[in-house]
Write a protein that binds this DNA or RNA. Structure first.
Length: 794
RNA sequence: GGGCCCGUGGUCUAGUGGUUAUGACGCCGCGCUUACAACGCGGAGGUCGGCGGUUCGAUUCCGCUCGGGCCCACCA
């Protein structure tokens, strides 16, 4: 057997990785007659490079996959890529130095696909190198045709149920690029501006003062707001104010979103100056007054100011207000505005038609669904519930983007009616394809929907994607895989991914999509900050695995409780190396003595019985911890037992038997079995080194071709031997005291000693295990007497 | 501003209404004792973030406060 003192972990891991791949160890078997454990792997966003944070949370879910596999489950562990949407668009633009709006849509989509393919390859390398035991045959991409079909089917079904509707809604708009933009494309910018104090006339001739930075929006003014608790203005609520220059009346209303300390405490509400305006618009259901066109110029509603750019109009209106004596003062201020990150242009809100999913009426149902799922850790459910309780609007699922799943929709050119694709046409691209029949009005010309769906509207379907919902709900695969056993993800996307998935799947199937949700924390940088390109604090998993090992990286990821964040410090990776080396050397020691598979002896030595009793407790503790997704506890129990009991005491205590031959069969049998059990307890965490040792030392005897499909350890009934447990622990106490004494006396541990007197509270018990203590500590004659503490007497 | 979580020796971490509070890294001393110096043995090191309350008793339960993280909201 080949047991060098120090293995080369990198080489070892690559060899094992090839072995797993060749043996197709993690392939899901649709035909197997075993209980299924299915995992709804989070498809990572194709947005750049994977960092340590990914390694952290994917490892944690993977521990569970390996544990369940060893528990005999038919584990379904697919992999996916979320390459549908804005992050991939931005990556493609960045990598190729181009901009989407400067090229044809088809060309840009092709570029995104090409970018994604390249990045997927890199992701795959990292995950495989980490030993993530996914079945790579079960691979999906959220942009691929099959998934598009599922996503579009979802849309059509919801449409049929009356759950999907289209209505005007404010959209973030860049007037320079003349495109809708997403919230993540916004950037804050501090600008110099003026607070303009403007007079509005009341019906009774009185005047009120309003401060605004955007006088050009006067034509869009719909109302005037004060704070409900503001005594100065209480009497105004319910009255009307006349908008200067345009001379129409608007209501004066109270709303707590007004800050009484800002400006005059009276604010004008326009459609739309900023995000608060959007909220008021939605909350009070105003008729919009849009005075800014998509190119950033004012429209006919603005009367004489029509055609002017926003800034020109602002100046012109200020001039006119001055002339009329309606401008009280201008106070220069610095304030933060939202600009488009590309071109630095201040954004506007435009009313456009958007698609929504109606679900506000189902809040109670979603809360109930959340209660049907086991959350690990439990408190994470609270975030889910808070999110639902705070929901105020239906879900807008349309995005004015390019790279995403298209809506299966056209509009009749003549009557404007919505024409939906038929199911057998899916996946469909309305920009290229045509409806299968003419509009009911007879018209044969159509305007395609150009928007694409929100990426979450597709990724919220992963349980259905995995279960092949496109083939219906009555086939074997769907029944095997839906609902899924586990949804693992980090806590930042509970509100997006978990909530949307539960909502979507409940709408489609009426059943919760998974039985368990396992929420992991974040792997952060040394100072506890998220890793990001802009911060420059990204640590790459591949670098760390080359420097240490995949096992070391995984060992690190297992070191905190589920749900806790963990700061990454490179020196912590040494712990994993240290542990793997220790395990390796233990196996090396065992290999020197295990020349064949030992038979169970008729009678077990007391030390062996003690070890098995300790082991039985550890197995139970690890198993229970894993059943509760507490992998870190399982790791801790196994690790502490291994170092502090197995290596420090047990191995030392059996050496005399291994070398002398006395009761050797008992020691060999126990060593063989306890080491195998330990390997199995560690296997989910450090799959490479445990596999290698298993192959070298156990495979021939055990038969099963890999430790990762071997049976999870079970303790035998007769191992729970209370007497042996107590005696063994007493022996440990005595040995510790004797070691301390030898140290004090400057004696080497190997030094033979004649007569020693040891005090112990229970001398009669020590007597029964005296021989083992003597042999371990090389004492000729151990005398025991009663004492209050365990100590060597001079 | 709202919600959730975290705050234990220099660093990371376990844990509990009750004797001297767990383990590891680091540090100090000794040791290459036939698996392992990527090791072994021994040792030093903590008012369990702060204040107040409940209790016979609190690191553990409650309230407030400070610090950190994440998500959400806000910036006329």
């Amino acid at each position: 057997m080949d047991f060098p003192k120090r293995p080369n972990f990198q080489e070892l891991e690559k060899e094992i990785m090839d072995f797993w791949e060749k043996e197709k160890l993690y392939k899901f078997n649709l035909e197997a007659d075993k209980p299924v454990y299915s995992i709804d792997t989070p498809p990572p966003t194709i947005s750049g490079k994977l960092h340590i944070g990914h390694a952290f949370s994917y490892s944690q879910a993977e521990f569970i996959a390996r544990y369940k596999r060893m528990r005999g489950y038919n584990v379904f562990y697919p992999f996916g890529y979320d390459n549908n949407g804005l992050p991939t668009e931005k990556l493609a633009e960045e990598m190729h130095g181009v901009k989407a709006k400067d090229m044809s849509r088809a060309k840009f989509v092709e570029l995104c696909l090409e970018t994604s393919r390249k990045v997927e390859k890199e992701y795959e390398r990292v995950f495989k190198r980490m030993g993530i035991s996914c079945d790579w045959n079960e691979l999906y991409r959220t942009i691929e045709p099959r998934v598009q079909k599922i996503s579009q089917t979802s849309f059509l079904k919801l449409y049929e149920k009356g759950r999907v509707y289209r209505k005007l809604a404010p959209t973030l708009w860049c007037p320079k690029c003349e495109t809708a933009i997403a919230q993540v494309e916004l950037k804050d910018k501090e600008v110099n501006s003026f607070f303009n104090y403007i007079l509005f006339e009341l019906e009774d001739g009185g005047k009120i003062e309003i401060a605004t930075t955007r006088p050009e929006l006067l034509a869009s003014c719909c109302a005037v707001f004060v704070h409900p608790g503001d005594k100065r203005y209480k009497h105004l609520v319910g009255k009307k104010a006349k908008v200067p220059l345009f001379n129409f009346y608007v209501p004066i209303m109270a709303d707590k979103r007004v800050d009484p300390n800002k400006g005059t405490g009276i604010v004008m509400f326009c459609t739309f100056g900023d995000l608060t305006d959007v909220e008021w618009f939605k909350a009070y259901k105003f008729e919009p007054k849009i005075s800014i066109a998509s190119d950033g110029t004012l429209n006919e509603l603005a009367g004489k100011y029509k055609g002017m750019k926003v800034k020109e109009a602002r100046e012109a209106i200020i001039e006119d207000l001055k002339k009329e004596g309606l401008l009280v003062k201008q106070v220069p201020i610095k304030h933060v505005v939202n600009v488009h990150e590309r071109c630095d242009t201040e954004i506007e809100f435009l009313l456009t038609k958007q698609w929504f999913i109606k679900y506000l009426d189902l809040k109670e149902k979603f809360l109930e669904a959340g209660r049907k799922i086991k959350w690990w850790p439990e408190h994470m459910r609270v975030r889910y519930e808070n999110w639902i309780n705070g929901l105020q609007w239906d879900w807008c699922i349309s995005r004015q983007r390019y790279f995403g799943v298209p809506f299966p929709v056209w509009y009749c050119k003549k009557c404007g009616k919505e024409i939906l694709a038929s199911y057998d046409q899916l996946p469909v691209d309305p920009l290229k394809d045509k409806p299968s029949k003419p509009c009911s009005c007879g018209c044969k010309e159509f305007v395609p929907e150009k928007d694409v769906m929100d990426t979450w509207a597709t990724s919220a379907l992963t349980p259905l994607i995995n279960a092949a919902w496109d083939k219906g709900t009555e086939h074997k695969r769907f029944k095997m895989l839906y609902p899924m056993s586990l949804r693992p993800n980090a806590h930042d996307i509970i509100t997006f991914w978990d909530f949307n998935t539960i909502a979507m799947c409940m709408l489609h199937t009426g059943k919760v999509p998974f039985e368990n949700i396992m929420i992991s924390g974040h792997g952060l940088d040394r100072h506890g900050r998220k890793m990001s390109k802009s911060r420059g604090n990204v640590v790459l998993p591949l670098d760390m695995m080359e420097k240490y090992s995949a096992d070391a990286l995984r060992w690190w990821a297992a070191s905190v409780k589920l749900g806790e964040d963990l700061n990454f410090r490179e020196e912590d990776l040494r712990k994993g190396i240290r542990h793997a080396t220790k395990l390796w050397n233990t196996a090396r020691f065992a290999s020197m003595h295990l020349k064949e598979k030992p038979n169970k002896p008729a009678k077990l030595n007391i030390v062996d019985r003690w070890l098995l009793a300790e082991l039985a407790e550890v197995i139970d503790a690890c198993t229970e911890a894993f059943e509760h997704y507490e992998y870190s506890k399982a790791k801790m129990h196994a690790e502490q037992f291994f170092w502090n009991v197995f290596c420090d005491y047990y191995l030392e205590m059996i050496k005399y038997r291994l070398y002398s031959g006395e009761e050797k069969d008992s020691a060999l049998w126990t060593l063989y079995n306890s080491l195998l059990i330990l390997l199995k307890l560690f296997a989910p965490f450090i799959p490479f080194v445990t596999e290698k040792i298993y192959q070298l030392l156990f495979r021939n005897y055990e038969g099963t071709k890999s430790i990762h499909i071997s049976e999870w350890p079970k303790s035998e009934k007769d191992w729970y031997d209370k007497e042996a447990l107590a005696l063994g622990r007493i022996a440990v106490e005595c040995i510790a005291a004797l070691r301390k004494w030898k140290k004090l006396k400057n004696l080497s541990l190997a030094e033979e000693v004649e007569n020693i007197t040891l005090a112990h509270p229970e001398p009669e018990k020590v007597e029964t295990i005296k021989k083992e203590i003597e042999k371990t500590m090389r004492i000729k004659n151990l005398l025991v007497e009663k004492g209050s503490e365990v100590i060597v007497k001079e």
